Simulated assay, not measured.
Amino acid sequence: MRIIAKLLFAAMTLAVTAISVSAADLLDEIKSRGYIRVGMFVAPPESWVDTSTGEWKGIDADFTNAVGKELGVEVDPIPLTHAALAPALNSGRVDVIVGLYHTEERAKVIAYNKTAFWYGVDALVTQKDRNDIKTFEDLKGKTIGVVRGSAQEMEATKLQERFGLADIKKYDTGDTMLMDIKAGRVDAGIWWGFTFDYAVKQNPNYDLQLVDYMPPEYLGADTLPGVYFTFPKEGSASLVEAFDAKLEQMVAAGETKRVLESYGLTSDAYQTGKYAK
């Protein structure tokens, strides 16, 4: 009986320890180790890694590095595909993900901070010289591309219901989707408007054309989708609060405007979430 009691006590101790570890404060852990692991994806000017220097650059990098400085820790960016973001967060490979829209499906498995630090403007793009797609209404019977695991994948489903798309083709990366649009293997694609705007500013002869930016009413919303940081569901409450405190301070100080304009994004829609043609 004593042996059984000891075994039961040991099992209970292990269980309590496991609960304590799973509920450990992530902010304390990050400060203790001295760096925060940030899941990010490549989509200039929002986020990319300079291959010549290894430096993480872009809108998301500027905001994340400011938060990291406030916390007194280094920022370790980890490039991931969209489909791998949530699994990486929930497995503990990364502490936070930057640059995601809020969706109901994602909110079931990950936690969001409350302050959108800028707003996304999604765009319908097609081949530069294509003339048969001039509005969203022209998508009837067409095939469009989206990035797998992105919010645009869910947006495309709403467009399919609204305009009668023939098919939605899903890609692991934006580059492969854009290549298929340019080659005519898909008719059009839902892409990030800020990426399109940035590409055109960098190269006026860019070989894709903008059909239109996506009005928020197509998504059943009054405003454009906000861009947020996301965190594990458990043990991240104090980390979320720390991020929001710094982000609120930056937004109030006009840092959103300064950062976005430094990348050539001057439309008020990126700062306010209000889009008007």
Rank of each mutant, 00 (worst) to 15 (best):
E74V: 10
T126G: 05
V146A: 12
V73M: 10
A116N: 02
F117E: 02
N131C: 01
A61M: 00
T51L: 14
T51R: 12
E105A: 06
H102W: 13
T126M: 03
A86K: 14
V121L: 10
G141Q: 09
N65L: 03
E74L: 13
D138S: 15
V125F: 00
A86P: 11
V109Q: 15
L124I: 04
L89P: 11
V109G: 11
A107K: 12
Y119E: 06
A88D: 14
F117N: 00
T143A: 09
E105Y: 12
E74I: 06
F117Q: 01
F117M: 00
G145W: 05
T135Y: 04
D138L: 15
D60Q: 03
A83N: 07
P87E: 13
V98H: 05
V109L: 15
T115G: 01
I110T: 13
D60S: 07
L89A: 12
I97K: 08
F136Q: 04
T53I: 09
A83W: 08
I78P: 00
Y112D: 10
V121R: 08
G149A: 14
E153I: 01
E74C: 07
I133E: 03
N65A: 03
N90F: 13
G149K: 09
L100Y: 08
A84K: 11
I97G: 03
S47G: 05
G145D: 06
K140F: 09
R93Y: 08
D76R: 08
V96R: 07
K142E: 09
S52A: 15
I59G: 01
E70K: 15
K69P: 02
L71E: 10
D76K: 13
V146N: 04
L139D: 04
N131F: 03
V109H: 13
V146D: 08
K57P: 02
S52T: 14
L71Y: 15
A61L: 01
T64D: 15
I133L: 04
E74H: 11
E46L: 05
T53Q: 09
L85A: 12
K114S: 12
G99P: 07
A123I: 00
F136L: 11
E46H: 00
P79V: 07
D62P: 01
G120C: 00
D132V: 03
K69D: 12
L71F: 15
G92W: 15
V73R: 12
N65E: 15
V49Y: 07
D50F: 00
P77A: 03
I110Y: 07
R148P: 07
V146M: 14
G141L: 09
T81E: 11
V49M: 13
T143M: 08
E137M: 14
A116D: 03
Y112N: 07
V75A: 10
